[in-house]
Amino acid sequence: MSQAGAPRITAFVCNWCTYAGADLAGTSRLQYAPEVRIVKLPCTGRISPLFILKAFEGGADAVLVSGCHPGDCHYTSGNYHARRRWGLLRKLLDLTGIDSRRLQFSWISAAEGQKFADLINDLTAKVREAGPFAGANPARKRLAPAPEEAQGPRRES
């Protein structure tokens, strides 16, 4: 989390459903917590486990992965492939210390702007409650120049 205590949440979403859902939340003027950074991919099937690891390595307090509902994939089966991978990956990460408070999965369609806003608010509240992940995050890169040496606003927790 940044110094202000805002959690850093990385969201990997598919282009066709969840990104459009987020867009709808915006155009509908729905308010939701601003701590989420969205990374748009063509399909959840493109979301490699490496992306999730990289987000945690870079200091994310939580990662959200979201795409089209089962049966609705723009590419027919990308989300089915992805679901199977995550069913195993999330267990492996949990075993090694990245538990389900830090890694969330959801299906959000292009019509579900409200669900997107609610999910981000819920997730943000959950991550705030869990606290900053930095100290306990096993994937975290602890290499950057020390914060006291960095100029300008402190960006590392």
Partner: peptide
């Protein structure tokens, strides 16, 4: 460089996760 080649915490975690997965 998806998985850091450094034998440090982040690279070792990513490597061991990816190998197992």
């Amino acid at each position: 460089q998806w998985v850091s080649t450094a034998a440090l915490g982040h690279g070792n975690y990513a490597w061991n996760m990816i190998r197992a997965f």
